[in-house]
């Protein structure tokens, strides 16, 4: 155990013993920042689907239910989540041209660029160019499927598992899955921009 770990543990113990804070309050803060917000939820879903073929099948058949299996639910922007898989010949990308609909339970709140007029206007009309500008060059023969979230259905892209990752654990795989890969503007395993 490192010196820092000992000191942190000692501090927590002393302050909780004195009733200044409670362990439960600390747990709640940590879990909020560590797990409840942001794209790590989606990354766990993707990593599970890469490792478990049965889970992948359930995820593609009923995204909402399979995502709820991992504890990620929510009526706000998550009542119905459809997962769309990338493959060698198909690439998916998600947008909301009318406002900024986004799958909050798995990706958190959207970044500013997702809500920008540039992205919303152009990704439906010229997706291949927009993706190339954003650093994702696709072969001209790869079919692009754009999902415009025009009602209450929310979309999550299941990226392809990067080659050479057979030996990685589910946790290590989840670390390769970026927010951008799950929107469909990047590949998994690429460094987050």
């Amino acid at each position: 155990m490192s010196d820092a770990a000992l000191r942190a543990e000692a501090l927590e113990a002393l302050l909780t013993e004195r009733g200044i804070v409670t362990r439960e309050a600390i747990d709640a803060v940590v879990s909020h920042y560590e797990q409840d917000v942001g794209p790590m939820n989606g990354a766990r879903v993707v990593a599970r689907a890469w490792c478990d073929a049965d889970y992948r099948a359930r995820l593609l058949a009923d995204g909402t239910a399979a995502i709820a299996e991992l504890g990620f639910t929510g009526p706000t922007e998550g009542e119905c989540i459809v997962v769309v898989p990338n493959g060698p010949r198909v690439h998916n990308v998600v947008v909301c041209t009318l406002c900024s609909c986004y799958p909050w339970p798995v990706l958190g709140l959207p970044p500013a660029w997702y809500k920008s007029p540039e992205y919303r206007a152009r990704v439906v009309r010229e997706p291949r160019d927009v993706l190339a500008e954003m650093g994702l060059e696709l072969d001209p023969n790869v079919e692009i499927r754009v999902w415009d979230s025009s009602a209450e259905v929310r979309y999550l892209v299941l990226p392809e598992r990067p080659p050479g990752t057979e030996a990685l654990s589910e946790d290590d795989l989840a670390a390769l899955v970026s927010r951008d890969a799950m929107i469909g503007v990047a590949r998994a395993g690429e460094p987050a921009s």
Binding site: E9, E12, L15, V21, Y33
Partner: peptide, 22 residues
Amino acid sequence: RNGEIVFEAPWQSRAFGLTMSL
């Protein structure tokens, strides 16, 4: 990373949670 705070060891998240709770 990915917009989320990165903790590399459990003590780091405990120290963070302790601070916020205080």
